[in-house]
């Protein structure tokens, strides 16, 4: 039965997540809240693993969540659920390619959907930030984590030499810093 529910949850995610891989994140938080199949902390780890392994990030996250929920069968079912709406929609759209692009209702809908998708990813970010920096409620965050965040923000946005590097470099470096400074303790 969990397979059916997994398929349905990821079918909805694939149908309503607009704007690529990260856009599935708010849906994954929603699934976590409603089903308890995996925790918010596991979701944050999952984003890191999905960014650092081959494959599209949205597909990787679905596979990961499926595995945590119901093993290897779960990862297959979740991924199939995620891609089924895409296949159906694209097969339909590709038959009416030009009309679809020029349709003013379609264009209008996406004019509203794009900022909404950004806003929902922002809300997911708030949850990840809370779990990372304030794991014990409102106690003061560990200053070492804040310094690491500031350095990473600078390296990924400001410093010319490192700005274009692949995310996997920053994820790897952060893991090393975590082990060396014993950041979990």
């Amino acid at each position: 039965m969990i397979y059916l529910r997994l398929f349905w949850e990821f079918f909805k995610t694939g149908l309503f997540a607009v704007g690529g891989g990260m856009a599935t994140l708010p849906f994954l938080y929603d699934i976590s809240d409603r089903t308890g199949w995996f925790t918010h902390a596991q979701l944050a780890d999952m984003v890191a693993v999905s960014e650092s392994t081959p494959g599209p990030i949205g597909v990787n996250m679905a596979t990961y969540v499926g595995f945590l929920s119901a093993g290897v069968g779960g990862s297959v079912i979740a991924t199939l659920g995620l891609i089924t709406p895409s296949i159906l929609i694209i097969l339909i759209v590709s038959a009416f390619l030009q009309k679809f692009r020029d349709n003013k209702f379609v264009e209008g809908a996406f004019y509203g959907l794009r900022p909404a998708s950004t806003a929902m990813i922002l809300a997911a970010l708030v949850l990840v930030v809370k779990a990372t920096f304030l794991p014990n409620g409102l106690a003061l965050p560990d200053w070492r984590l804040l310094v690491l965040a500031a350095v990473l923000l600078a390296l990924t946005n400001v410093v010319k030499a490192t700005k274009k590097l692949h995310p996997i470099v920053f994820i790897g470096a952060s893991a090393v810093v975590g082990v060396v400074l014993r950041l979990a303790e």
């Binding site: 890191a48 970010l125 779990a131 990372t132 690491l148 995310p167 920053f170 090393v176 810093v177």
Partner: peptide, 11 residues
């Protein structure tokens, strides 16, 4: 713990 900080920054 280090990687999660990085995930926040990436998102």
């Amino acid at each position: 713990a280090g990687v999660r900080v990085c995930v926040c920054v990436l998102i």
